[in-house]
Amino acid sequence: MSAGCGPEVEAVTRGLGFDCHDVAPVVSVRAPWELAHWTMPLLEVLIIGGAVFAFVHAVRRYRAGDPVNLALWWTSLVYLFVTEPPLYFPEWFGLDRLYGFIFAHNQFTVQFMGDRLPLYIVAFYPVISQLAYELVRSLGIFARRGPVAGAVVVAFACQVFYEVFDQIGPQLKWWAWNPGNHIVNHPALASVPMTSMLLFASVSMAAMTYLVMRLAGGRARDGGPRRGWALVPRVLVAGVLTPPAMAIAGIPASLFGGDHPDTTAQAWVLGVELALVWLAGAWIVVAHLRSTGRGTDEPLSAFGRYYPAIYLCGLAVCWIGALPAYFGAHDGVTRDGTPIGSGPYALACFLAAGLLLAAQHAKRFARPAASVTG
């Protein structure tokens, strides 16, 4: 038996259409037209292209005197490599009793770590962090209300942009959750574990953004922005400290865990926390938009102007293609045997994301930005 390919892993990967015993240990490459679903190469182009766009934008900001975007881009990758390997191979880290086998990705064009880590997932971390940060920054919330309020709105923005992706993935076989894992994967909203919705889609990105703002966004001893190698240890520290922040947010629900978890109580706790993300984020945005002099010196970059809308349109195409099978599902499972996500919640996220973009594009600057441009 291949390392990391126990009975649960084997069952989940065979449901996705491949055998976890027959994988390349380091890297594998396959033709895009050989993938399990037509949306998969579209998703790869959307996310990998977005990561490149975000990197170019971050470098421009860095050269213009603002290192936060670039630091956040790299911190996202540090966070990825701190969190993803234990999720894929918990037995390697002695976490199999604590977390168990959680999920498996399908096979995409480029894959790493025994076909557990697709290249597009590597790209997704800097994409979602940059998308949310840039949206909040361009609204002037960081400049006017500080890093704490800005991080709260980042949590809200990440929630609505992430969940339009998270709620459709299992139906289209982008990945599959392990239904037998009652430690992490329950309770769930439709097919998506609520811990993933809260901790990964909101808390992690908010914590990471706050840490980067504090560690990399200040001034160096000479009074100028931090640059070069001085950013490296700060990026590493921010990436390593992000998972503990996630763990803190997960404590309330964990109080109802143990050998015999009360999933109903956990669902209520996680639901309340998710509601607080929505309410607090929306309240800060609305209060900011209603205030006077709201960050008129904040530029709207090319990345912020175009990519979030492109991202939403790309995911909308995937959802439209999935709707026939979604409406034809019985007991939450399509005729192809894949679980559906929550359409109402995804629709609410689409609407909220659209309103955030509308607020961003409705901004009118009193004068062109004098310093940093996108």
Results as ranks from 00 to 15, higher is better:
L255D: 02
R305F: 10
V59H: 12
H21E: 11
I48F: 13
M213C: 03
A366R: 11
S204M: 14
W177G: 12
F112A: 13
A11R: 10
A190K: 06
G94P: 07
A353V: 15
L42W: 12
R61A: 14
G328M: 00
R61F: 04
P252I: 08
T263P: 00
I47G: 15
A36C: 04
R226M: 04
T39M: 03
F165W: 03
L117Y: 06
Y125M: 12
S301Y: 09
R234S: 04
G239E: 02
P170F: 00
P368M: 01
P187M: 06
L35Q: 15
Q111C: 15
N106K: 02
G341Q: 02
A267P: 04
E163K: 04
V269I: 07
M194W: 02
V78D: 03
M213S: 08
N178L: 08
H37V: 04
Y345K: 02
V12T: 04
L98F: 14
E91V: 12
I251C: 01
P243V: 08
G304S: 06
P179M: 01
E298L: 03
F18P: 13
H361L: 15
G304K: 09
V59W: 14
A206T: 10
A275S: 11
G293M: 01
G239H: 14
T209Q: 12
A123D: 14
N69A: 14
S371K: 13
P368H: 02
G100W: 05
T75C: 15
S291R: 12
V122S: 05
Y79H: 15
F103P: 03
A132Q: 10
P90L: 05
H57F: 08
A151R: 04
K363W: 10
L189G: 11
G374F: 09
G94E: 08
A369K: 01
T195R: 15
V237K: 00
A190R: 01
Q266A: 00
S254G: 02
P344F: 07
R145Y: 01
W229M: 14
Y162N: 15
A206P: 06
I183F: 06
A369T: 11
P85E: 14
E10Y: 05
L198F: 10
P170A: 04
G50Q: 06
